[in-house]
Amino acid sequence: MTKQSLRIAVAQTTATADVRSNGETVRRLMREAGAEQARLVQFPEGFLSGYAKEQIQDWGHVDWPAVRGELEQIIALAAELRIWVVLGSAHPLTPPHRPHNSLYVISDQGTIVDRYDKRFCSHTEITTFYSPGFEPVVFDVDGYRFGCAICVEINFPDLFTQYGELGVDCLLLSAYPVDEVFEAKARAYASINTYWTGMALPSQTSHLMNSGVIGPDGRYVAQLDGGEGLVYADLERSAYSVWFDKARPWRRTALLGDIYRSRRVDDPRSEDRTCF
């Protein structure tokens, strides 16, 4: 059943190499989000395990049993609180394969219903740290459709277009940004593709931008003002009826091209592009 509105929470957290500390932070913020009636809470890229190149320099230093143990506690708490969780973490594969850079999608029933594995990794990530994924991930919460993306994928417009074609209402973009232009790209994609964008970032990058939720018009619905914590946004399609009911379907029709081909004119003044 589609609810009129759906509240989401987006986290800004200090990433560490201490898996147990990261797990405790996730659970504390889950409880805060649950108390504020959020249906979903989103965390930054690589947060639970620590992110390669920053907190992690060698996968051999990661306490993988501890990562699993913290994840199991998070899953159990999601069921207790009846809240969805989108959690950034490395996902270990069978040795000698490198981990995926992933977002676990944990349902309010306490199950991992899907996992998004970063498809477009940076040069350092793909040559030293991670194995790539290959599939988009979409899931529905109370009639609202979500998609997932991670960090450097911001540089690949087709990925964001694909999620628009898959009918997402909100794209969850978890990242560890390195420049200010990242924010401009996220706002542009939200507006071009007509969906909300939840942007979960570590507090270490708050000098560049802060975690927040961008509306389908490219403007922030809500944004943290530095530090750590959660920011909340109520997704409500009726508040953006022009974008969802008019702009989105018109753009899809326009891309098909028939409305233009049917109006093509046979005129020498159209054909000759060298004169007035």
Score class of each variant (00 low, 15 high):
V181C: 00
S203H: 08
A233F: 12
K185M: 11
G226R: 03
T16Y: 03
S122G: 13
R261F: 15
L77P: 11
T253N: 02
L208M: 07
R273T: 15
V265D: 14
K185I: 08
N22T: 00
G34I: 11
F182S: 00
H61I: 02
L166C: 02
L235G: 03
F120L: 00
F156H: 13
D117G: 04
I74E: 08
F276I: 08
A17P: 06
A33F: 10
A247E: 13
A35K: 15
I126L: 09
G50W: 09
M199Y: 10
V265A: 12
H207Y: 15
L171R: 09
R248W: 12
F120D: 01
L103K: 08
D225M: 11
Q4I: 13
P202H: 10
Q223K: 15
L172D: 03
L166D: 06
G226P: 09
P216E: 15
N101K: 11
N210I: 09
E271L: 04
G227R: 05
D117F: 09
L29P: 04
L255C: 03
F129K: 03
Q57R: 01
R28P: 02
F276C: 14
Q42Y: 14
S211Q: 09
Q57N: 12
D258V: 01
E72K: 00
L224D: 09
N22W: 04
A78V: 05
I74G: 01
G147M: 13
Q42V: 15
R263K: 14
